[in-house]
């Protein structure tokens, strides 16, 4: 599947209508698809041994101050 078609299909599966000209732009060199790939590469080069997914941060003023 070519990149433009991939973006349109992925959008469609999520209920978004991404027009072809926008998908073309997202797929071009330096576009958002490439940016996501770069980010993903950086994320998966990182050593996360021993860590668990955690979203909200655990800072508690009472604990810190006591």
């Amino acid at each position: 599947m070519e990149k433009t078609e991939f973006i349109i299909t992925l959008g469609d599966q999520q209920g978004l209508k991404i027009p072809k000209e926008r998908a073309d732009k997202m797929a071009e060199k330096g576009g958002v698809l490439e940016m996501v790939r770069v980010i993903r590469t950086i994320l998966f080069q990182s050593d996360v041994t021993g860590s668990r997914p955690h979203d909200d941060l655990p800072f508690d003023l009472k604990e810190v101050a006591s």
Binding site: V36, R40, L43, F44, S46, S51, H54, D55
Partner: peptide
């Protein structure tokens, strides 16, 4: 991707 980002967050904190 999102879960990996969360794990990175835990590690970096």
């Amino acid at each position: 991707d999102y879960i990996r980002a969360q794990r990175i967050r835990s590690k970096l904190v």
